[in-house]
Amino acid sequence: MTTIEKYLHLQGSVPCKIRAKRGFATHPRSIAERERRIRISARIKKLQDLFPNSDKQTSTADMLDEAVQYIKDLRKQLKVQENT
């Protein structure tokens, strides 16, 4: 047998693992991770809709910083109203 025939014969004895196409992961962990990312994205969008003047193009970290700042401002306004 030639070297190539030996190589092909060896390959034939080992089952090949078929790879999924991009976006079609089949491993349960990959599917679970995709579902988790989808849920997080949906909740981030809902949170973003709650705040006025929120820029849809900002990163998640920047949007969360803005949300925290907005909530702090609302708390300050509430304290001012309670004291009057």
Rank of each mutant, 00 (worst) to 15 (best):
K72E: 15
R19S: 13
T26R: 14
Q77V: 10
H9P: 06
M63A: 05
A32R: 10
K72R: 11
N53A: 01
R39Q: 05
E35W: 05
I38P: 00
I44K: 04
I31N: 05
K45Y: 01
E33P: 06
S13L: 09
R37Q: 15
I31C: 06
A42Y: 00
K45A: 00
I44N: 03
S41Q: 03
D73F: 14
T60R: 02
R22L: 09
M1E: 10
M63G: 04
T3M: 07
R29M: 07
P52T: 03
L10G: 15
R22N: 11
I4F: 13
I38R: 02
R36E: 13
K72N: 11
R29T: 07
I44D: 02
E35H: 06
F24I: 09
P52G: 03
L47S: 14
V14I: 12
T3C: 06
P52N: 04
D73C: 15
A42K: 04
R19D: 15
T84N: 13
S59R: 09
L74V: 11
Q69W: 14
P52A: 02
G23C: 03
L64M: 05
D62T: 06
F51V: 08
Q48G: 01
M63W: 00
R39Y: 03
L50I: 00
T26C: 14
I18P: 05
L78H: 14
G23A: 03
D65E: 11
F24N: 12
E5W: 01
K21E: 08
L50C: 03
S13W: 15
R37I: 08
C16S: 14
T26A: 12
P15R: 09
Q11G: 09
N53H: 01
I4P: 12
T84K: 12
I71C: 06
S54Y: 01
I4L: 14
S41D: 02
T3V: 04
D73E: 15
K21N: 10
G12L: 06
T2V: 07
E66G: 03
V80A: 13
R22D: 10
K45T: 00
Q48H: 00
E82S: 14
A20K: 11
A42V: 02
Y7K: 14
K72P: 12
C16W: 12
S41I: 01
A25F: 13
S30A: 10
R37S: 07
R19G: 13
A42I: 02
Y70L: 05
E35C: 04
E66I: 02
I40S: 06
E33G: 08
Q81M: 07
V14Q: 12
